[in-house]
């Protein structure tokens, strides 16, 4: 279980000798259940990526606390892994070596990490591309490698930062379906940042709507659509349409209040 308790964060921004304090997050509280798929949605600059980095322990927060199964988060740990929006694959490493990278940093012996990496490349359908370099792959394939790298360390919690934000629409839908299938098999807690309402509703058990800067939780919605979700059917379901409309209204309201 991930407990986010009254987390706040400000940045110092210096523009030409003027230092201004920018509040990124105020009093964000949220409880995420084990194996839950939760999406965080909000307008650009609402601090959703900041929140994800704080949960990962990459950046410190000013007040409040984050507990994972009762333990306070202060640094990155083996129970979490991030999938990055820009893939963050190292261009001088092959796909296989990129997936091995996370295991290498976790001190997994060489032979073991190769076999683990191969296994996860297979799960994301990249087994034939292990010797390719990232630039030789399409955006969708690169993100599959990014996903394999995160899954390879077998984290309890998968932190996904707009992972499908930089691929084309068709690939995006494919990746969403694949992610759901993987999630159903691997059973992990997923915290998914997105700005797509459609994506949030299709994937998640719950959707968290955030306000513009300073980001706070505006609303938390249950998505009671049954699983497994077949993309074409779900998207035509009246409940799906209703939910996306509702989130759109909620986002609009949050943005109006924020100004």
């Amino acid at each position: 279980m991930v407990e986010i308790q009254r987390v706040s964060k400000s940045f110092q921004k210096t523009v030409k000798d003027n230092t201004a304090e920018i509040k990124a997050l105020t009093d964000v509280s949220l409880c995420i259940r084990e194996n839950e798929f939760i999406s965080i949605i909000g307008p650009s600059g609402c601090g959703k990526t900041t929140l994800l980095k704080i949960i990962d322990g990459l950046i410190p927060h000013d007040s409040g606390q984050i507990l994972i199964n009762g333990n306070r988060v202060s640094a990155p740990g083996p129970d979490r892994a991030v999938v990055f929006q820009t893939f963050a694959l190292l261009p001088w490493r092959t796909v296989l070596a990129n997936v091995e990278f996370s295991l290498e940093l976790r001190r997994v012996p060489k032979e073991e990490r190769t076999s683990i990496a191969r296994d996860y490349l297979k799960r994301v359908g990249l087994e034939e591309f292990e010797h390719h370099y990232p630039h030789e792959l399409s955006g969708g394939m690169q993100q599959r490698a990014g996903l394999a790298r995160a899954l390879a360390v077998n984290p309890m919690i998968l932190l996904m930062d707009e992972p499908f934000g930089s691929v084309d629409a068709q690939t995006r839908q494919l990746l969403q379906e694949e992610l759901l299938q993987l999630w159903q098999r691997e059973r992990k807690t997923v915290i998914f940042i997105t700005h797509s309402m459609d994506e949030a509703v299709y994937l998640s058990d719950r959707v968290v709507v955030m306000t513009p800067r300073p980001g706070r939780v505006a609303e938390i919605l249950d998505v009671p659509l049954p699983r497994p979700r077949i993309a074409d059917e779900v998207r035509r379901d009246p409940q799906f349409v209703e939910l996306t409309n509702y989130i759109w209204d909620s986002l609009k309201k949050a943005m109006e209040n924020g100004h």
Binding site: P76, P78, R80, A88, R106
Partner: peptide, 14 residues
């Protein structure tokens, strides 16, 4: 150097 590379490394415990 792309800062996300460094962030990625730190995130995986480098």
């Amino acid at each position: 150097v792309d800062r996300t590379f460094v962030e990625m490394g730190r995130s995986f415990g480098a």
